[in-house]
Design a protein around this nucleic acid. Structure first.
Length: 438
RNA sequence: GGAGGGGUGGCCGAGUGGUCGAAGGCGGCGGUCUUGAAAACCGCUGAGCCCGUAAGGGUUCCGGGGGUUCGAAUCCCUUCCCCUCCGCCA
């Protein structure tokens, strides 16, 4: 959520910044300004009445004879004041609700150094790391490779879960598990993250903090609950990314300055409905309803944020470097930057089987956008007023796509796949995946 | 699932309709004393919102929501969470 004061005081500037990312609902913006103004008026009015009531009430408390005419007349007068207060409170509550509904639909402002542009074609290539592996043969894609090796089983995945579910077998399953441990260990031991093991079902409130709700409900899986929602039963959602759980770790808290910057990492399965992506990436292990991911989340002071984004990105990159995977770093243009983010680097790994770079990590600086929704604050100095923290997150990395990248970049002419050296200890010393009879 | 108990400030804990944002203690900060430290003593010590350049003023918050009342931490309804015992269970 944006700072409403900023929005109302500098509407023009905010509008321009939002237009950069393709947001053009200026009617909504002026509605917010109107509601904010109305809210303030109602509040001033109701608080004046409450002040009066408080004053008279404490005077009434000191009247000893509660049956005196003096007491009775004051009580009658206050009865009307009480009713007015109630009426104004109802109005205020409604305006407050409308205001928050409207404000939750406004995306974050892009950072200044984010390039203009509407689509991914305007993204900027920042750097390229490593080189495309030379192959004196026609590289195969991971679906063919995985099927031939007996490690990737799309058919049986569909049998169990339907489309966009996959079963891994043998060395393939172990590869995913090895990657998970390798990544978490790296971030904990080398990068100083605190490891977490998390709930996967999450409350709507948690999703609202990170920005998936209320606007993108169709993208997440919602579970059914006992009892109707009208009766107050709150449904739980399958978390689409551990960013949700990790960012909410400090919701409602005031952190001490020496705690920052602070980093968490976690492996968690992620679930996405992929509504609206029909027909896209239907082949293989690229876009699944369920996938594993090792997540990185950082909390910091505003003045640390830009550096923290570079640091976080370098942590995700380190995984690719140690695995010897060729990739490039893209700075997303304003139009391609996600709803809650100010600035995002995508890491795109080279997939020779598709002759393309594909996103394998997305590292973002959210500013105070999520912190405002989640009331995540820190105290800049002892006794100072709490200030909203900044949050950052990134995949470090998406496991399924790393499996794909290893299969495709380490494939050999005979269809076997070498295991990156860094991973071999996690694979029980296995150096190569070869076809097995299944 | 059944039966009970409980949610109060950073923490512990009192408070069952009226100057209660809330006793007392702990912790933290500052001071006195001390060569220094400890002890002792004194003072300060929550957050949000509104008005104001500021000083300051107002208001809300005792798990959440609603109600009763002139007035609610206190009474009523509802909901969430935690604990104990029983049952079930990876």
């Amino acid at each position: 959520m944006l700072d409403l004061r900023l929005l109302t005081d500098q509407l023009q500037e905010v509008t321009i910044q939002l237009q950069r990312r393709g947001f053009h609902d200026e009617a909504l913006l002026s509605e917010i300004v109107r509601l904010a103004d109305q809210r303030r008026q109602l509040l001033t009015e109701v608080e004046a009445l409450r002040a009066r009531r408080n004053e008279v009430s404490s005077a009434m408390a000191s009247i000893k004879d509660k049956s005196s005419p003096e007491f009775a007349s004051q009580r009658d007068a206050m009865r009307e004041v009480g009713n007015s207060i109630k009426t104004l409170e109802d109005q205020h509550r409604k305006v407050e609700q409308d205001l928050s509904d409207a404000a939750l639909g406004i995306p974050n402002l892009p950072a200044e150094d984010v390039p203009d542009g509407k689509t991914e074609s305007s993204n900027q290539q920042i750097r390229v790391v490593g080189e495309k592996p030379t192959m004196a043969f026609q590289p195969r894609d991971h679906v063919d490779l995985g099927a031939a090796l007996g490690v990737l089983d799309v058919e049986r995945g569909a049998r169990i879960g339907g489309a966009r579910f996959t079963v891994l077998h043998g060395a393939g399953a172990r590869l995913e598990r090895a990657l998970m441990n390798f990544m978490v260990d790296l971030h904990v031991d080398q990068h100083g993250y605190r490891e977490a093991w998390l709930p996967v079902l999450v409350k709507p409130d948690a999703l609202q903090v990170t920005g998936q709700l209320p606007k993108f409900e169709e993208d997440v899986f919602k579970t059914s609950t006992h009892g109707s929602e009208e009766e107050g039963a709150r449904p739980l959602y399958l978390s689409p990314t551990a960013e949700v759980q990790l960012t909410n770790l400090h919701a409602g808290e005031i952190l001490e300055p020496e705690q920052l910057p602070l980093g968490y990492t976690a492996y968690a399965p992620c679930f996405r409905s992929e509504a609206g992506s029909y027909g896209r990436d239907t082949r293989g292990y690229i876009r699944q309803h369920q996938f594993g991911k090792v997540e990185l989340v950082r909390f910091c002071r505003p003045e640390q944020a830009q550096d923290q984004l570079e640091l976080l990105t370098s942590h995700a990159e380190e995984v690719l470097k140690r695995l010897g995977l060729h990739y490039r770093v893209m700075l997303l243009c304003a139009g391609d930057t996600g709803f809650s983010a100010k600035k995002t680097y995508d890491l795109e790994v080279w997939l020779p089987g598709q002759d393309a770079y594909r996103e394998i990590s997305s590292c973002s600086w959210m500013g105070d956008f999520q912190a405002r929704r989640g009331k995540i604050r820190y105290r800049p100095a002892p006794k100072a007023k709490p200030v909203l923290a900044h949050t950052l997150n990134g995949s470090g990395l998406a496991l399924s796509r790393t499996v794909v990248a290893v299969l495709e970049q380490y494939q050999q002419e005979d269809g076997s796949v070498r295991i990156p050296e860094a991973l071999q200890p996690y694979m029980g010393g296995l150096t190569e995946i070869q076809a097995t009879k299944s």
